[in-house]
Amino acid sequence: MITFENVTKTYKHTTVALRDVSLDIDKGEFVFLIGASGSGKTTFIRLLLREEIPDKGKIWEAGRDIVHLPKWRVPYLRRNIGCVFQDFRLLPNKTVFENVAFALEVIGRPHHVVQTQVPQILDLVGLAKKRDSLPGELSGGEQQRVAIARAFVNRPLILLADEPTGNLDPATSQGIMQLLDRINRTGTTVVVATHDEVLVNWMRRRVVELDHGTLVRDQARGVYGIDSGPSDIEDGVEGGVA
């Protein structure tokens, strides 16, 4: 589903954000991308969204080379990728329903489809009763649920989450992770960039660790810190490292 092949990205020709990263993520996988601040997690997400272009290397998403994708095709690429951020990025003047419906209107879905799909997705994230509220009237956890609903309403192939629980308390964070897990079970590939140790250890999913832009660990059912579990880099057990 996602392939990074010797990808290097530098900013202003001096700061190396990613260094020769090679990685495969299969369809339907749930992957944690971990590392300290400045390790390259956000650059990884931005490259997948084609907000950035690598200096070297190739990136494929759903079999498509996105590095050489013409600029006018980028919006169509993004329609297959749901995206969730730490700061939610909701439109403050639109209601919950309108925020979610917006993602469908943008891609030209007819009115009746919008009216059917949005209530379904709001039901999935547990916000059916808050459809007419404005984001400012919701808690942080509820706002993040709206953001997830908006990201998933198109049924994208990939869902990217950049520090989705960064602004949330532990209990709410667990709820968000459970929601992402439910989405993953529908076959959507989920990539979560985080440094929430508790959640990573609790979920026990594939962990890809970056350190100063270098991929240092790729471990199935991993934890936040290095443990004795199987690592693909060390063992070549499954998945990713090319």
């Binding site: 919006p75 993004r78 329609r79 990025r89 909701l90 439109l91 917006f102 943008v106 891609i107 908006r150």
Partner: peptide, 16 residues
């Protein structure tokens, strides 16, 4: 600009 960035994020074309 935030509104515009959200539109870009969900796949709106420039003309949209």
């Amino acid at each position: 600009r935030r509104e515009v960035s959200v539109m870009k994020l969900v796949g709106a074309t420039n003309w949209f």
